[in-house]
């Protein structure tokens, strides 16, 4: 998902970004106030993404992945919210003011998680992350799993597109009403899943053949620049995160 750009955010040490990402997440969940998530998105994540020159991409993907959640949350609230100030009634839908409020608030949390995660993955090279995690003392197999998991979405997209092409070439209609699309799902999802299972096995052979599990001390091709300033900054983030968690617990007691 990474997008190569020359920006200050891109040049930050991956660990700094990992910590920042978690810190923002925790802030959004721990701090009181119904609109905190939205504030963090508007005042921190969006400006950071402008700094990282990925604002349009962030906005677009966040919109795409949040939309299905938004629709389902709103639907469910307007169907099942019991009592409250009715907004309007239509057929089986009877949304209440309180329900709508609740929907918007919980959506804030979802959008925060999405955009926070996207900000990180759009501006951090997966391999740099892997090296940074290993240097920080994480076992390489765990670092590898984290990094490849982060790439699952683009890898599924790539494969999905090829499979879609193959099935359309066999006359499968994929454009049209919901029913047509639903029918097209099986011939596309099944090869994707089976193919991924096969890929997992072959990947395992490929990395094993290249001494992934050997006990030698590892080196790295690329250097990941780090600065004292960033190290200090990371300590500060860690302390802030700790305080946020304590605060969150106390607040809820």
């Amino acid at each position: 998902m990474y997008i190569a750009r020359a920006s200050g955010l891109h040049q930050l040490h991956p660990l700094t970004k990992v910590l920042l990402t978690f810190c923002l997440l925790i802030a959004g969940l721990a701090l009181p106030g119904n609109w905190t998530s939205y504030l963090i998105i508007l005042l921190v994540i969006f400006p950071l993404s402008v700094w990282g020159k990925v604002f349009p991409n962030l906005l677009r993907i966040t919109w795409l992945v949040s939309l299905p959640f938004a629709i389902s949350v709103i639907l469910i609230q307007s169907l099942f919210w019991g009592t409250g100030t009715p907004l309007f009634e239509f057929w089986i839908f009877a949304p209440k003011l309180e329900g709508a409020r609740y929907a918007v608030i919980s959506l804030g949390k979802i959008i925060l998680v999405m955009s926070d995660f996207l900000l990180f993955s759009l501006t951090t090279r997966p391999d740099a992350l892997m090296i940074a995690l290993k240097q920080a003392g994480m076992p390489s197999s765990i670092a590898y799993i984290i990094v490849t998991t982060l790439q699952i979405v683009p890898s599924f997209q790539r494969k999905g597109a090829t499979i879609l092409d193959a099935q359309r070439s066999r006359g499968l209609e994929t454009e049209g009403n919901l029913f047509v699309r639903a029918k097209a799902l099986v011939p596309i999802v099944l090869p994707l899943v089976l193919g991924s299972l096969m890929e997992v096995e072959e990947r395992a052979i490929a990395i094993e053949a290249r001494a992934f599990n050997s006990r030698q001390t590892e080196t790295s091709l690329i250097e990941i620049p780090d600065t004292q300033l960033q190290k200090n900054f990371r300590t500060v983030i860690l302390i802030v995160m700790f305080l946020l968690i304590i605060f969150g617990i106390l607040w809820r007691l």
Binding site: R125, P126, M130, E199, R203, A206, R210, S214, T219, L221
Partner: peptide, 24 residues
């Protein structure tokens, strides 16, 4: 399926094995 899946360019992909055996 013979790529590590953890690398960003071909050059770095080829480095994967050498990193694992600790070449400087």
């Amino acid at each position: 399926n013979q790529i590590s899946g953890a690398k960003y360019t071909v050059f770095e992909e080829i480095a994967f094995g050498l990193e694992n055996i600790g070449v400087e």
